[in-house]
């Protein structure tokens, strides 16, 4: 039997870091957009979980919690043809221009 990257119960691991970080605005936004999409029944938590489980394992481990949420939201929204990656890329490029990306 194979163990997938999200299925970690019982694996050796170090101490539990109890440090709390105050959520950044983008994390609060990711949380809220996710909940709003759920409320409108546009996606289900089960689908988001599946998308996170199917991510590249290295990426899954290296991303922060809300980064994983955003990655899975993008997967589900593009899969459902609500958004395309290109649209998101274009929007980000426009932000970077406006925000003064060096």
């Amino acid at each position: 039997m194979a163990r997938r990257h999200h299925d970690m119960g019982g694996l050796p691991a170090g101490p539990v870091d109890q440090t709390e970080h105050a959520l950044s605005d983008w994390e609060i936004l990711a949380d809220a957009v996710n909940q709003a999409l759920g409320e409108k029944k546009i996606k289900r938590t089960d689908e988001m979980r599946r998308a996170r489980e199917d991510m590249d394992s290295e990426l899954y481990r290296s991303l922060s919690y809300y980064e994983r949420w955003i990655a899975s939201m993008e997967t589900i929204l593009t899969e459902k043809k609500i958004l395309t990656r290109e649209e998101i890329d274009r929007k980000v490029a426009a932000f970077e221009k406006k925000w003064g990306e060096p």
Binding site: M1, A2, R4, D7, G9, G10, R49, R50
Partner: peptide, 15 residues
């Protein structure tokens, strides 16, 4: 003690 691809809700450690 099954292994199936895709999304499953039964943790590995308990199979």
């Amino acid at each position: 003690a099954e292994d199936r691809p895709g999304h499953i809700r039964t943790p590995f450690y308990v199979r």
